[in-house]
Design a binder for these strands. Sequence first.
DNA 1: TGTTCTTATCGTAATTATACGATGATAAAA
DNA 2: TTTTATCATCGTATAATTACGATAAGAACA
Lengths: 110, 110
Amino acid sequence: MGQTKTEQFTKADIELAALAKAMAHPARVAILRILLERRACICGDIVEELPLSQSTVSQHLKELKEAGLIQGDIDGKKVCYCINEQTWKQAQQLLDAFFADYTSCGSSCC
Amino acid sequence: MGQTKTEQFTKADIELAALAKAMAHPARVAILRILLERRACICGDIVEELPLSQSTVSQHLKELKEAGLIQGDIDGKKVCYCINEQTWKQAQQLLDAFFADYTSCGSSCC
DNA sequence: TGTTCTTATCGTAATTATACGATGATAAAA
DNA sequence: TTTTATCATCGTATAATTACGATAAGAACA
């Protein structure tokens, strides 16, 4: 997207933005939800759950993997995806801390 | 980004993705953090805190406003920004519920 | 009224994202 | 070995994002 000035921001802000970016597409949210619901690894029939081609889904999986939210391990000729527990909990904490930082400014406000 | 197939997904997934998208840029995270830290409305000198031009910051503010995360009210010739309490808490709940849905798949996993 | 200050919007260029089909790569089955 | 199945990657077209300067819009002040 045009020039990017990412390096000019705080490490924390960049990290949070990267996490948000990984979740910034309905397909990726849907993938995460599928993996959450099945509570186990699921081999590639994620493609059949989504209205996208195999190559497109593979790209989304790659982005989620690069963000660390999921992991994929080879199992024969299939690939086993699941939520990456550690990163997931880190992300949870990160977001939780960010949103919890809010305190109402009450009536002295807009 | 090329074709978009947003309408083919669940309402919940689209909503969460939209929220994530609003936070998917360091500048917007930084803006939110500024508004959080000051614990009050802040009239427009957000621009001076960021390494971006006034027009670019205004664009980011617009996106955050459209996502509902912030609100801006006119105060004389300045504009007063602050976190939108209601939407903020909704977003918090949405994310919290999503991330809390995880249960470890233990050793029967990848 | 005219000027100044503040913010939003317009127009535009560069870069990234999204999506698909086609092709590779690898492992299991025939 | 050949075939089949599964998944990743490449190449490419289209659309969205990001960023900026320039300009418009509005309120406050002279």
